[in-house]
Each structure stands twice: as C-alpha cells, then as structure tokens.
Design a protein around this nucleic acid. Structure first.
Lengths: 152, 152
DNA sequence: TATTGTTATACTCTATAACTATA
DNA sequence: TATAGTTATAGAGTATAACAATA
C-alpha cells in the first residue's frame, strides 16, 4: 500500500499528527505482541523490568510515575512479575510502607531475551528508515509531553 | 521536564522508537479527550465521521477497513452515531446486505466543531515544532505500516 | 461459497474511590 | 496529614466465533 492509497480514505485526517500517531502506534502494538509471543511478557511488563534494571531497589510507585501507570494498576502487574519469579519484592527497611524491587536472575535473562526480540521487531517495523530518520523520529516523539503528568 | 530527566528512568528503553511512540500516543490520547469533552465524541467516532465525509455513501465494512476497526466493533459505533443523529444509515439499493452511510447536517457540523478543537489540541501538543518538523513527523509516522492489514 | 452486518462474549488497559499501614 | 500499597469496580478498546440475510 503506497502513501496515496493509505491517505485516500480519510482526507481531513491526513494532516493530523495525532491520527498518524494512532495508526503507527497500533501497528507497533500488534507486531510487538507477535514479537513477544511465547514469552508471557507484554509491552508494559518489559517496561517495568527495564525501569527496575535501571534503578535497582526502586519501589512500585516510582516505577508507575516513570511509566505513567497508576498505583492501583501497578499492583497486579508487579504480582504477575513476582509470580513469574522475574522480580523480587522486599519490604524496604528505610520505609516499611514501601517495597524494594529488584530483578531476579531469571528476570534479567527475560529482559535480555525481550530486548533482543524487540530489537528485531523494531528493525522489521522500520525497515526503510535511515539512521538519521530514526534519530529524528526518536527526537520528535521524545519532545511530545503529557500535558499534565500522572499524579494518581 | 527536560529530555535528560525524562530519559533518566528507563535507560534501555530510550533508544526504542516503540517506547517513544507509546508515550507520545498516550499523551495525545489524554489531551484529545480533554479537547473533545462535552461534545460526546471520541477519537474513533471523529475518525468515522471524517471517513464518511470523505466518501459519502460508504458502508460500515469499508469504513472499518480504512480505520482498522473490526466489523463486529463497527456496529455499536455506527449505532451511537445514528442515535446521536450525526449519521444516517440507509439500505444500499445496489447491495441490500449493506448500509449506505452519510453525514446528517448535524453530523457535518459536529465534524467541523471537532476538527477545530482537534486543531487547537494539536497546536497545544506540538507547540515548539517548526513546520518542517511537523512535515517530517507526519511523513515518518506515515511510513510505519501494519505488518498484516486488518482482515476481520 | 463469500460477504455485510449482527450478537454475544471475553480480555486487556485504564480510571476512580475507599481502604490499611506506615511516615 | 500525607504517602505506599491494596481492593473493588467500571469503562473503553479490541478480539473471536457463530449466526442471518444477501450476493
């Protein structure tokens, strides 16, 4: 399907960034799911593993704020990861309300596997893009911010 | 929040286009909802109105294929638009299985109102972007395709 | 036999409000 | 009183399968 055909159906939507964002995002989500099939992981879970890998000992609320996930929704996500033995959750001795999160060895391996699959998925989705175009796209998307950051 | 702070939390995710796409899309969705509040419209409904405006007489299935919406999910969406008297639905005399869809006068007005609000929303979300950057972003996003198009 | 629209259903993601325990 | 985590719940969005009417 070329540009012209893809644009043909929705005239007034074509100039809207939001529309292209929605389509592109949907395309990514579908292929991302396929890329991770069999691992039991999903986009949001990989995000959580990545944040914990980057900040060992971080607590649930902080992970949620970084990834725009509400506290209430973090609970079952972290439960999933703990049940799958990918994350270990310990009461933080400094603040006994909070849990300190760390990757298990299995969790670190799973993150590695997922990142490899995701890398292949990205190459598939962005086949015709030059390195410059990829850098531009990352930069342009990175400059789009939430109007109001997640509070709770 | 500057680039550095926003990148701080998720090290390995930062190079991934899919991650930036997810964040940017989420930000757009939130502000889009706010932009349309009070109209009773949602992103997907505006998309449907826009496609019908662009191809008067089009049927449900064709709208769904253009917007990647499954046939089964089109039913209640079109019902909503018909109930709100924004779309009129007539049996197509050429193919009596199908419905021919057209905007009502009220539907055309609603689309116009929504497009104006969406335009303001886009300007808000993309405040620091130059025209060149917007064109680049549209082009780059437009080149991302669904790996397998929606069949059913 | 294929296609248009329909119904029923289920799963994921996201959102809010009210609760508990600690600080 | 504020914060970390929890529970319950509800609304979107999206997915599949099976069905009726028409081509």
């Amino acid at each position: 399907m070329d540009q012209l055909v893809r644009y043909a159906g929705f005239g007034v939507l074509a100039p809207l960034i939001g529309y292209h964002l929605r389509r592109a995002h949907g395309a990514f989500v579908v292929d991302f799911g396929a890329a991770l099939s069999g691992t039991g992981m999903r986009q949001i879970l990989v995000g959580i593993l990545a944040v914990i890998a980057n900040q060992p000992g971080i607590n649930q609320g902080a992970v949620g704020r970084i990834l725009d996930i509400k506290r209430a929704n973090m609970v079952s996500l972290i439960n999933e990861l703990v049940d799958a033995q990918l994350v270990c959750r310990l009461v933080d001795p400094q603040d006994r309300r909070a849990f300190s999160l760390n990757l298990t060895e299995k969790g670190a391996e799973m993150l590695q596997i997922c990142l490899e699959r995701i890398s292949a998925h990205e190459q598939r989705m962005l086949e015709g893009f030059t390195d410059l175009e990829l850098a531009q796209l990352r930069d342009l998307l990175g400059r789009i911010a939430r109007p109001v950051p997640v509070e709770d």
